[in-house]
Design a protein around this nucleic acid. Structure first.
Length: 288
DNA sequence: TACCCGTGGAG
DNA sequence: TCTCCAAGGGT
């Protein structure tokens, strides 16, 4: 019965899919890999300009691998989670050295690259190479939770049951298109906040809607505060390094965050993560 | 497992 | 204004 979701969702996708550059026929596996890392926890509209800049600047893994990692961080801009820029740089090096400059097509080889987890490995294997994998991102999990399980939201962490369900829904052919279609439905119609069931191709058979769209049971999902956190402090400090072409004195970092203890902790964290370097003269810069 | 890791737009 | 959360991963 869950299989009857396929046709209406595929038909809906054929008509409503967005024309995104990494979905075009001329997109390379490298471009697709870059897009998937950038899209982790990050909206499409914010990725678009950064992805275009990266592809022009570094069209191949080799071209990025030749750069110092700090350049990847600099051109990451304000996308957020800048460790992803370091991960992409490390991916570029590993692909260049260990895979002959070609993005691997096997799930296990992708999964072994830095910053590539279950979702991203499945996405790249599917979208770049036509592989058949359960692609479980937040959109897919939400759509399946609602349409099949009758729940407003999926569990906090991906469960074995969710994986089994997704695998059972894999079509014999065309798994990549099925994956991107469900993701798109979740992104455009079956959204987290205000789902547009009137526009949904499977509204008539959605278990959650048929049950009257019951509110999420169980504990409220923990919200993430941001103002005043170490994360905000790290962001401020790194922005100084990104925007200064060259080493900056400690005073320039001290100026952007008042709390001395927190500032030192955040700076140590950036150094530990390889997002910043301290030179012998006590100045700081992006990693060379 | 639960927590950490950025940023900014929508409601 | 403030809360939520967006194609997750690492530890």
């Amino acid at each position: 019965m869950a299989a009857s979701l396929r046709e209406p969702i595929l038909d809906w996708y054929a008509e409503h899919n967005r024309d995104l550059p990494w979905r075009r026929p001329d997109a390379t596996p490298w471009g697709i890999l870059v897009s998937e890392i950038m899209l982790q926890q990050t909206p499409v509209v914010r990725v678009l300009p950064i992805w275009a800049d990266w592809m022009e600047r570094w069209p191949t893994p080799e071209s990025l691998a030749q750069e110092p990692p700090g350049e990847a961080v600099r051109h990451w801009g304000r996308l957020g989670y800048p460790r992803r820029a370091l991960n992409l740089h490390a991916c570029a090096k590993a692909i260049t050295v260990d895979h002959g400059g070609r993005v691997p097509s096997a799930y296990d080889e992708l999964r072994a690259l830095p910053g590539i987890g279950d979702y991203t490995a499945a996405a790249v294997a599917s979208f770049a190479y036509g592989g058949s994998h359960a692609v479980l991102d937040t959109n897919v999990r939400r759509v399946l939770a609602r349409a099949v399980q009758g729940e407003e939201y999926p569990p906090k962490a991906t469960t074995a049951a969710e994986r089994r369900l997704a695998e059972s829904l894999l079509p014999p052919v065309g798994a990549p298109r099925w994956a991107v279609a469900v993701m798109e439905l979740g992104a455009l119609v079956c959204t987290a906040r205000a789902p547009r069931c009137d526009d949904c191709p499977v509204a008539s058979r959605c278990a959650w809607r048929l049950a009257g769209r019951p509110a999420h049971a169980g504990p409220a999902r923990v919200g993430q505060t941001y103002a005043g956190t170490d994360r905000q402090c790290r962001g401020r400090l790194l922005a100084v390094l990104r925007e200064a072409y060259g080493p900056v004195p400690k005073e320039a970092l001290d100026a952007v965050w008042d709390d001395h203890v927190q500032r030192e902790r955040a700076l140590d964290g950036l150094l530990d993560d390889g997002l910043a370097e301290i030179l012998e003269d006590g100045t700081y810069r992006l990693p060379a």
